[in-house]
Simulated assay, not measured.
Amino acid sequence: MRTYSLAYLTAGALTPAAMLRLGAELGYAHVGLRLLPNGLGGPFQAWLDDPVQQRETLAAQRDTGVGVFDLEIIRIGEGFDPLAYRPLLEAGAALQAKALLVAGDDTDEARLVDGYARLCELAAPYGLSCDLEFMPWTAVSDARAALRVVQAAGTPRVAGILVDALHVGRSSTTLDDLRALPRELLHYAQICDAPGGPDLTVPQMIHTARCERQLPGEGVIDLAGIFAALPADLPISVEVPHQVRVARLGQTAWARAALEASRSVLNDPCESAP
């Protein structure tokens, strides 16, 4: 039976404690938190320097039994220093998180490989995997590039590759590329859907990714093929941001719809909590 995590982008307006309680209400086993912004001025959950939020989050974990799966986000660019992310690693240990979401932005691949290897070395004692997410607008644009970086880094013990259905659908990644990913590098995958469109620009792709994804089954991404190519027991992060529809339906109804649609597409008979 699959387990599901409520991704940050699906419920990013909530505090970590509120996400955990919502996850428990709806039947998610985990949540994903964004404790660092994805870019200058980007939104995030200001947990690292907030003792009140920290206490409330740990209490919500104890009360609900819902865990934290992944923490966002570490971006490896020019001048990357993994030591700057030690507070995030310490948060991961305190929250008993499983994974760090990593983006590769450095176009100098040798330097990117070195940065990734050093991050993995630093993260290992904290019990966190470093899951490199390929995205078509980054230096790690597809699954082949992600595997090349991980292998060039020596395939560290905590290395991982994160497969996001959106980025599979909008990159050059093929189903054979997914099948070629070693099982030990796959810790979880992200599910969503999206409309088609010829010659999407990078700003259009980024806007969809962050603000306007569709529920699984509503768009044109080959979700059946993607998840058939991945291990059947892989945990699923339900990452379906849609600012307009969340505002209209409310956060609870949207997070419930996202989970139900994900289970339907994956033919998972388990039903969410009422």
Rank of each mutant, 00 (worst) to 15 (best):
R2T: 08
R2L: 10
T3P: 04
Y4E: 02
L6M: 13
A13N: 12
A13P: 01
P16Y: 01
A17G: 04
A18T: 07
G23R: 02
G32R: 01
L35R: 02
P37I: 12
P37A: 10
N38Q: 05
G42D: 14
F44P: 03
P51M: 08
Q54M: 15
A59V: 06
A60G: 09
R62E: 09
D63M: 00
R75M: 05
G77P: 06
A84Q: 15
P87R: 02
G92A: 03
G92L: 06
A94G: 02
L95W: 11
A99E: 12
D105C: 15
E109S: 13
L112H: 14
L112P: 10
G115K: 01
A117C: 12
L119H: 07
C120E: 06
E121A: 15
G127I: 12
S129P: 02
S129C: 03
P136K: 03
A152P: 01
T155R: 07
P156R: 03
P156M: 04
L162V: 06
A165R: 01
L166G: 08
H167P: 08
V168K: 11
L175T: 11
D177F: 04
L181C: 04
L186Q: 07
A189L: 05
G196L: 10
L200H: 05
T201R: 06
H207S: 13
A209Y: 00
L215H: 03
L215Q: 04
L223Q: 05
A224M: 09
L230P: 04
A232C: 14
P235I: 08
R245F: 14
R245M: 14
V246E: 02
R248W: 04
R248K: 08
T252N: 03
A253H: 03
L259P: 09
C270R: 15
S272Q: 15
